[in-house]
Write a protein that binds this DNA or RNA. Structure first.
Lengths: 344, 344
DNA sequence: TGTTAGCACTCGTTCATCGGGAGTGCTAAC
DNA sequence: GTTAGCACTCCCGATGAACGAGTGCTAACA
């Protein structure tokens, strides 16, 4: 494959694994001792030179060892990484209590993941593209304000306070509630089309304004605008010298703090479905410029039909892909379990 | 005052102002040119030596200039800082749109403040210690789940999904709603005492469990647990070399990210009321250990009677106290304006 | 032909050295 | 009380030597 014979593959594998551990350039002598096939450092040198010509390795300066190139990492991730059935990770020990707010759960997941992996993490709130309206309730707060509560299928609750321009008596309120629920319940957002909207507004008569606001709120609760992203463990990057210089660290942490750019990562990862739902971005493969010295591993989780979110791990290129990918797989299944419980 | 004659005060003032600008130790020659009272560097040297003996200045090493000590800063903040009526800051240009969620407003305020000041910022959600229940509504989500919506006086909305153990028909629901509202509306948390609680539970009969859960939710919505803190501009600290070394930066940013410790700062600042509502913590004066190389300026804002929060600015000790304190004063008044609007 | 030992060479890192600059403290003169 | 002058201290940056890790190449070996 790709001009690599078996021995070259073995050597490349050894080099990358060693580099993942040490973080420093790895020399020929190290490998000559490391591998089972007993070869002298000189032979290794020749092979390493070849591997460099083929683009898998890089010489940072004339007389250091070699470090993997992006292509090298890519090869490692694609071919060399066997997902061994590890003992089930200690993640279960982190009892994620039944918190009533999804926001809390997400924050906690991000924090836990950062703690166990020692990398920076992010998690997006699920996007309810196919989610259905379950329940809508309007209530009068006082003479001038109306409170709308919208509950979606996955028990996601949204509140909206609507200023009232006209008087609204209890009877009208009751009718409006009936209208909203009977029409919208069980519908997903794409199903609420213009026909339905105009018919509802017609039936609502003088209160069509209110219907409009409620519908906007429903739409909002699924729109990309509302995509919340939580991050944690940003300071973990200081554990890796290659990311700790103040320029890089500042840029990276800023990206994690501002979160705006992370949204592109989320949509990218949601769109490019791999079979496993796990995506690896090495260096420049990431859509985010400031992460060109990092690797990002993302996983897609799915609460229920079409309700998806992304969880990601950001670390140095020499991150422990094996462990990270295992953790994410484990987390995927756990997340399913958590959210199936009745919770908001 | 404090063994300082007028000339010493002038010199101290000059030294601190120069240091705020340059960030480096300031020497006698610099000051001898800077001040209006024409004195030679030798004279200044003598005075500086006195100021050091009095504890206002520090010699970082034998032959650098002097830098202010914490005591020096404190004197500067307390006596030397005249709050000049600056042109109204450009803060007004940042139109804080009418967002329906308070969370959004707070985040935006933190971000804006970080951008204009170039320091790290934090803002706490208001604590509703004296806030009153305005409206409570229970609705059946389905046969097994009940949705409780609680609205407090400042239009703060809280949702709670309650699993049902027993069947609940519409009539019972109506009665429960009536009971909750008629009893609790207009009451502040301290007013909801054991007497009221037990009377309500008695009246609720077989549904007393539900009343309990609702009351818990009410309590939660004001408890310290629920104190949310938003931060922004953490990476601004990299603009100040004295904070940028990776150990300090990492600790600081971690504190800002984790937010747990910031809560002590919030309560401290809420408790120690100054007339202006503005509090300055210099170095070790701050309750947070990791901020011993920083100064923190906090302001208390008040939405309505007893509904208070804290906004704070974290920067190097040589922060521009004048500008920061002005910004915070300005912000205080603006925050009032924002939250008086009907919003959640 | 593939493998290995040996050697010269390169380059980053560390450490000590050294001069310049900035600033102080002291003394003596005004 | 103020100032000029001077010796002294210390930081900082540049310079260079010693060192170690690692390579590439060549020649010898199986």
């Amino acid at each position: 494959m790709d001009g690599l014979d078996e021995r070259k593959v073995k050597i490349l594998d050894a080099i990358i694994r060693t580099y993942l551990e040490t973080g420093g350039p790895v020399g020929s002598r190290t490998i000559s001792k490391y591998t089972d096939l007993n070869l002298s450092s000189a032979t290794i040198r020749n092979e390493m030179s070849d591997l460099e010509d083929l683009g898998y390795l890089i010489t940072p300066h004339t007389s250091a060892g070699r470090i993997p190139s992006d292509k090298g990492y890519r090869f490692y991730v694609d071919h060399l990484l066997e997902s061994k059935d590890k003992e089930i990770s200690d993640m279960k020990d982190f009892v994620i209590e039944h918190t009533e707010k999804m926001e809390q759960v997400l924050k906690q997941v991000a924090r836990m993941l950062a703690k166990t992996t020692n990398y920076a993490t992010m998690i997006s709130s699920p996007k309810y593209s196919g989610n259905k309206v379950k329940f809508i309730q309007l209530s009068l707060l006082d003479a001038n304000q109306l409170l709308a509560v919208i509950v979606m299928e996955a028990n996601v609750v949204k509140n909206k306070i609507i200023p009232l321009r006209q008087r609204l008596d209890n009877e009208a309120l009751f009718k409006l509630n009936l209208l909203l629920n009977s029409t919208l319940n069980g519908l997903s957002i794409p199903e609420i089309n213009l026909g339905i909207i105009s018919r509802m507004k017609e039936q609502a008569g003088e209160y069509s304004d209110i219907v409009g606001v409620v519908l906007d709120a429903v739409a909002e609760s699924i729109s990309q605008e509302e995509l919340e992203i939580y991050t944690s463990g940003a300071t973990n990057i200081f554990k890796y010298p290659e990311l700790s210089d103040s320029r890089k660290a500042s840029e990276l942490i800023y990206t994690l703090e501002e979160k705006q750019q992370l949204k592109t990562l989320v949509s990218d990862s949601l769109n490019s479905e791999s079979e496993t739902g796990i995506q690896v971005y090495i260096g420049n493969e990431s859509p985010i410029q400031t992460m060109k010295d990092c690797s990002v591993v993302t996983a897609t989780y799915e609460l229920s039909e079409g309700v998806k979110g992304t969880v990601g791990i950001i670390g140095p290129k020499r991150m422990d892909y094996e462990r990270v990918m295992d953790s994410l797989k484990e987390l995927k299944t756990q997340l399913d379990g958590i959210f199936r419980k009745p919770s908001g």
